[in-house]
């Protein structure tokens, strides 16, 4: 005879008892009316729990979730578009500066277009470019350039922040 506690009864219901123990428990259940009753009660609970129904969400729940997600995609797309347009402007500006420097170098009378002077041309080109860069990076200009870049960056950050805030608010409202 083994004492049958609730744990063993639960394991019996779940079919988790090892064969040797299962036989012992079955013998015990045959001989003990009280244990059988306890098992029956537990089996009732097990059976009734198996009948529990799922609750249902309100109608239109799926559409609500999908519209929430749809709005999120839209905000993301807008964000992407905004970053892309700012980057494009920045790239165009950089390209403009490079073209401007290039034209300056080309139009310099000191640089001849003869074939023999082609090597000189490239050397002169890079030397001039180097000098221009040096000039731009001179202590006087660097502060101006720094200010302009800082201003540009601050403006960019401000717009990104505003856009992000707007996107968040938009999501929140939905």
């Amino acid at each position: 005879m083994i004492p049958i506690d609730d744990e063993i009864l639960n394991q019996y219901i779940d079919g988790e008892l090892e064969p040797s123990k299962l036989n012992e428990v079955m013998e015990q259940l045959k001989s003990s009316e009280a244990d059988r009753k306890r098992l029956n009660y537990l089996q009732i609970v097990h059976r009734e729990l198996g009948k529990i129904k799922s609750s249902e969400t309100s109608s239109g729940f799926t559409e609500l979730v999908m519209s929430k997600l749809e709005k999120k995609f839209k905000v993301r797309k807008e964000d992407k578009f905004f970053i892309l347009s700012i980057s494009s402007i920045f790239l165009i500006l950089c390209l403009g500066i490079i073209i401007y420097l290039f034209i300056n170098i080309i139009s310099d009378p000191a640089i001849s277009s003869s074939v023999l002077q082609k090597v000189d041309f490239y050397i002169a080109y890079f030397t001039k470019f180097n000098e221009d860069i040096k000039e731009i990076l001179s202590p006087k200009n660097i502060s101006i350039a720094g200010s302009i870049i800082s201003f540009g960056l601050l403006t960019l950050i401000y717009f990104i922040y505003e856009e992000h805030k707007f996107g968040k608010r938009k999501l929140g409202n939905n």
Binding site: D6, N10, K37, Y41, L42, I44, V45
Partner: peptide, 21 residues
């Protein structure tokens, strides 16, 4: 197991199980 045991005890206490048996 604890949830089952608890529900069984409440069921028995309220005589639900007796009726089913």
């Amino acid at each position: 197991h604890r949830s089952r045991n608890l529900l069984r005890d409440i069921l028995v206490k309220n005589n639900y199980a007796e009726e089913i048996l």
